[in-house]
Write a protein that binds this DNA or RNA. Sequence first.
DNA 1: CTTTACATACCAACCGGTCTGTATGTCAAA
DNA 2: TTTGACATACAGACCGGTTGGTATGTAAAG
Lengths: 210, 210
Amino acid sequence: MSKKATSTKRERDPAATRQRLIDATVRLMLQQGFSGTSVDQICKAAGMTKGGFFHHFENKEALGTAAVEWWGQMGTALYAEAWKDTTLDPLEQLHRMFDIMVGFTRRPDEAACVCMVGMMSQEMSATNPAFQAACEKELNLWTANVARMLTAAKKRHKPKSKFDPVQVAWFLNSLWQGSMLVGKTCRSQELIRHNLKLARNYVDGLFQTN
Amino acid sequence: MSKKATSTKRERDPAATRQRLIDATVRLMLQQGFSGTSVDQICKAAGMTKGGFFHHFENKEALGTAAVEWWGQMGTALYAEAWKDTTLDPLEQLHRMFDIMVGFTRRPDEAACVCMVGMMSQEMSATNPAFQAACEKELNLWTANVARMLTAAKKRHKPKSKFDPVQVAWFLNSLWQGSMLVGKTCRSQELIRHNLKLARNYVDGLFQTN
DNA sequence: CTTTACATACCAACCGGTCTGTATGTCAAA
DNA sequence: TTTGACATACAGACCGGTTGGTATGTAAAG
């Protein structure tokens, strides 16, 4: 019984500390943007001093890209419920994805329906190539998944007329990003839901009703 | 002949100076965002010192809202070519609007197709109520114009099925904002054009073909 | 002579980042 | 099993530069 068996108070958990910094960053950035959020603020929110911060991240930019990546992973995990079951009718997959997106609009208070990728992209992608690349990667991933489902749907359902799944996927991605943007500006989650309704109908309208 | 008749060198033109400051702000903000753009930078770009700047604007926020308003006026002026002629078939008005939007994607180099309202909105609307209100106002204006045209189009063309012009207008506004966002991130003006093509087809599809 | 439109000089607060110090864990030699 | 060298994970003080903003001076216009 030489090994510490009980409740040795947990300090020195670098992975958790790093994650705490990322979590704080995401939370603050969604509210204030990247430039508007200082390292001091992040450290304070994560219960950490600046010395410790720069041990985990080379600079503020490194934290930013880490935050975008983390956001992407979290998003993918949330969408996975709709995407993973490849035996499902792809059109049904898309509908479940829309359900999930509607779910985002129903989340409580200020954890509202916003996207860090979209925000970071608008603010930084023109000046910071690393951020631009990170954001583009996440947008590509979302689009690729939607395009895959649309392509699969074309095989199971007769399309009403010709369409390019990739183009439609970008169309839907743009609409989704724009919806969150406008929804935030107009402080209306209902607006987002209306857009999602029309988008859903649009997708259904691509295929012949049975 | 006491009055200076010739070429009195133009100094002291406060209106022009103010506009120069706004122009510089717009140019810099489109590149770097609001927080990322400093007053010093703006002054330098406008050939002005900070003392002069704060004579024209109470603070940086006042300049920001002025810039958004200016952007809105400029936008309205650009869209006017499609909107003003109310005797025209409203569906044709919408098509001309789409033409104008496509035109934005063909502008040279780094005056690319981006929207200051969308950028400012993403970055600041969560924290700064003045900016949020200013951006919301501009979005409302665009939507109102599109909704008006859609409503008028319903009277002249039989709609294929029921739709709410206001909802569709917000749908299109969101798509437009999102297209510029994604287009910037992916550095692809063609992507925006594809989205506009699909949007155009979408609007056409609302009405019965003749 | 007053008002306006700037320029100049300056400020405290804050920025991202570095430096050094120290408590804690790891691991191998004794 | 103990010990001690070393790496890791932070804390805290500090740095030069920049931030938005101000106080003051001054020249031009009316």
